[in-house]
Design a protein around this nucleic acid. Structure first.
Lengths: 219, 219
DNA sequence: TCTCGCTTCCTTGTATACATGAAGTACACG
DNA sequence: CGTGTACTTCATGTATACAAGGAAGCGAGA
């Protein structure tokens, strides 16, 4: 039953191994959109039995990676252009709300935001995965600064499907990482000054770049 | 193994029976907030085995009813005043966004909205569950009219935790159902006229009533 | 009597066996 | 040759058996 110990799987529960294994397979394109993942297949790939695999598939379905058809199995969902647009519209709504709240209530900015900028600057542009993660953390911290836990949960829920295009986005050369970092700094400055109009402008400009990759969606 | 056939459970999968059974227990207060629900208990209550029960508990945890502690079990979550406020803040954000979009893009209103008003009028005020459901459907249809599927998903995600207080809310006498229906009609009129300011005012007034029940939250 | 440690039990986590129902195929009939 | 039906097969849905870890209770020693 030992499949050779996936790196970093020490101490993780079988369910988490199954989740990460299947998720990675989807992200890498080993399970192309539209294809069905049978439980037995997921078991072989991840090296765990059906019980944890089923829980993992359920979770992946809840996060939008899969579509569960009763007695048919788990189909890998394709991200349609429409859905991508909808996702970014909601994301813009969430971040806009967060920024407005931060400015109006003059909330203190967490040191985390500035720290992430430093980390970003110190990260080589070649490290795509690293930049994507830092960018995600920045926006998450921004939303968290609004002080609404539910809002953060909603934002996190959007991240799962968006993570599927984030890497593609950067690989395709959209959103140069230096530009992103610069805009993050500008955002911090605007928020510090409680300049709502300017902060909103930055958010809109920053997020407007993303949906362009609709054209790169054929994968 | 036959526990006497819960009403309306014909044809439902064991997982759904488990889900509805445990959920009903939480809503009815048979599992008070803070208490732990053991899998074996859920099995006895719902009459299914542990496999579907586990899936049901996972789903309930994802919806915010339960809090899963590793190797400790499923604790019934209490809705704190803070969380309730956060939920309504996000809900207001979502509905505001939907209303703005409907007005600006001059979207057609689905006949569903008006139909729900008629149904609401025809429903006796004593039928609390019915009124709650109609109200939920109205707001869901309103959000759906914005034409963003992801937005609807987010809205639906808010409903699960809010359903726990909706009934209490009406029982306590907040939000007389006639007032609610009248405001729904006013909302429709404003949207028809693409009167953004008026529609937004109605939304805010309509939702502002709800968080008052924070005081009735001790249950 | 209090505290430390061990043991035991009970819970969750995981694996596997069994049931059920659907989909695909092959054969027979029109 | 096309179509319909019945059978076979196989994936999912469900139940149960096994493993492992933690918490509570009990006992012994200080």
């Amino acid at each position: 039953m030992d499949t050779g110990n996936i790196a970093g799987s020490e101490g993780l529960s079988a369910r988490d191994r199954a989740y990460q294994g299947v998720r990675a397979g989807i992200l890498k394109g080993e399970f192309p959109p539209g294809s069905f993942i049978e439980e037995a297949t997921a078991c072989e790939v991840t090296g765990v039995s059906r019980s944890p695999v089923r829980e993992a598939l359920n979770r992946l379905a809840a996060e939008g990676y899969l579509e569960l058809h009763r007695r048919r199995g788990a189909m890998v969902r394709a991200l349609s252009a429409t859905e991508l647009r909808d996702l970014y519209e909601v994301r813009l709504m969430v971040e806009t709300h967060a920024v407005r709240k931060i400015c109006r209530e003059e909330r203190a900015l967490p040191a985390e935001l500035l720290r992430l900028c430093e980390v970003h600057e110190a990260t080589p542009a070649e490290d795509l995965l690293g930049c994507v993660e830092i960018n995600r953390l920045f926006h998450q911290a921004l939303v968290a600064a609004a002080g609404n836990r539910v809002l953060v949960d909603v934002f996190d829920g959007l991240q799962a499907p968006l993570s599927r295009v984030a890497m593609v986005s950067l690989q395709q050369g959209f959103g140069k990482t230096e530009v992103i970092e610069e805009e993050h700094r500008e955002m911090i400055a605007a928020l510090r000054a409680h300049d709502e109009a300017r902060a909103l402008a930055v958010v809109e400009r920053h997020l407007a770049l993303m949906p362009r990759l609709q054209s790169a969606l054929s994968s």
